[in-house]
C-alpha cells in the first residue's frame, strides 16, 4: 500500500484517500464524492504544469472575463481555439476532461433550458405552453458554450496545478492586500491545511458511520427530518474529532516555531521564468483579440 509509484504528488491525496471504497451500505455517499473529478490535479509534465501558478490564476481570470466580453460566433471561435491550444499544451487527455464535465451536464441543461424557453422574441416553435424563440436559441447556445468554456478553462488550471501551488500563487498575488489588513498569509495557510485534512476527515467520517451502523444506526431511510436527526451520531463525534485535531495541530505548529507569515522564508519560492513572461504576453494578445473581434469588428 505504501509503495505507490514515484508520481504520487501532493494532489494524489484526493485519489489517495482510501475512503473504504466500493460496495457496502455506505458506498453511495463515497461514490458521490468520488464522482466529482472536475478539476482534480492530473499528474503529468507539461509547459502548463511547470508554469508559475500566478500566471495560471491570472490567465484563468482573464479567460473568464473574455468569455463575457465576446458576444458573437467569431469571438467564441477564438476563445475555443485558445482553450483547445492550452488543453493540448497541458497534455491532459481530453477524455479525462470530458469525464469531469459529466457532473455539470444537469446544470447545463437547466441553464440552457431557461434561456431557451423564457427568452421573449420571435417564436419558432411551441411545445405545450412553452415557446422557443430565435433569440432564445441564440442565448441558450451562447450560454451553454460560455458555461462549458468557463468550466473547462478553470479546470485546466486546477488540473495542472497542485492545490498547495495554487494557494502559494494566491498568497503571492493577493500579497498587496496585506497593506489593507487582509490576512492573506493566514487565509492561504488555512486553505492548505484544509486540503491536507479533507481526506483524513473523509476517512474518519467513513469509520464513524460504519461504527454507528454497527450499532444499528440508519442513515438512509425515513423522511428529511428523520434523516437529519440520524446524522447527530455521525456529526457529534466528527466535530469532536475535528476540534481535537485542530487543537493538536495548533500545538504542533507552535512547537515548530510557527508564528504567522512574518519573517518566514519559503522552501519553494515563486520565481517568474521566461516562459511565464511569454505566457503573459500571449494572454494579453488573446484579450486584445477578443475585444477587437467581439466588440469592434463585428
Amino acid at each position: 500500500m505504501e509503495e505507490q509509484s514515484e508520481e504520487a504528488d501532493s494532489l494524489a491525496i484526493w485519489a489517495g484517500c482510501r475512503v473504504g471504497a466500493g460496495s457496502g451500505p455506505v458506498g453511495n455517499e463515497e461514490n458521490m464524492l468520488r464522482e466529482i473529478t472536475l478539476g482534480q490535479y492530473y499528474q503529468t509534465d507539461s509547459v502548463i504544469h511547470r508554469m508559475d501558478p500566478r500566471v495560471k490564476l491570472v490567465t484563468t481570470v482573464c479567460y473568464i472575463i473574455s468569455l463575457f466580453i465576446v458576444d458573437n460566433i467569431a469571438g467564441y471561435v477564438i476563445a475555443g481555439v485558445f482553450l483547445a491550444l492550452v488543453i493540448r499544451l497541458s497534455r491532459v487527455p481530453v477524455k479525462y476532461m470530458i469525464r469531469g464535465m459529466k457532473s455539470i451536464v444537469f446544470l447545463l441543461i437547466i441553464a440552457a433550458g431557461f434561456n431557451l424557453f423564457l427568452t421573449p422574441g420571435e417564436t419558432i416553435a411551441t411545445f405545450w405552453k412553452l415557446k422557443i424563440t430565435r433569440e432564445g436559441i441564440r442565448l441558450a447556445l451562447f450560454m451553454a458554450i460560455r458555461l462549458v468554456f468557463l468550466l473547462m478553462g478553470s479546470s485546466v488550471m486546477t488540473l495542472t496545478t497542485t492545490p498547495n501551488n495554487l494557494t502559494d500563487g494566491m498568497e503571492k498575488l493577493l500579497g498587496p492586500l496585506k497593506h489593507l489588513k487582509v490576512p492573506v498569509h493566514e487565509i492561504a495557510m488555512m486553505m492548505s491545511i484544509a486540503l491536507r485534512f479533507i481526506p483524513i476527515l473523509l476517512e474518519e467520517t467513513d469509520k464513524i458511520m460504519k461504527a454507528q451502523i454497527a450499532r444499528g444506526a440508519d442513515f438512509e431511510s425515513g423522511n428529511l427530518i428523520k434523516k437529519a436527526k440520524s446524522l447527530v451520531p455521525l456529526l457529534v463525534p466528527l466535530f469532536i474529532s475535528a476540534f481535537r485535531r485542530a487543537n493538536d495541530l495548533a500545538m504542533a505548529m507552535e512547537a515548530r516555531c510557527y508564528r504567522g507569515g512574518e519573517h518566514r522564508t519559503k522552501m519553494k519560492p515563486l520565481i517568474y521564468k521566461k516562459r511565464d513572461g511569454i505566457a503573459y504576453g500571449v494572454v494579453l494578445i488573446y484579450l486584445v483579440l477578443c475585444v477587437a473581434v467581439g466588440k469592434i469588428l463585428l
Binding site: I208, K210, Q212, A214, R215, A217
Partner: peptide
C-alpha cells in the same frame, strides 16, 4: 454480530454515558 471499532471512544456522541449505551437497543 456486534462490532466494536478501534478507538471506539471516537463514536461516543450522547450527553451522558447511559443514553449513549441506549443508542444500540433503541435502534433495534
Amino acid at each position: 454480530v456486534g462490532l466494536v471499532f478501534q478507538y471506539p471512544e471516537h463514536q461516543l456522541f450522547e450527553a451522558d454515558v447511559f443514553s449513549d449505551v441506549c443508542f444500540g437497543p433503541k435502534n433495534l
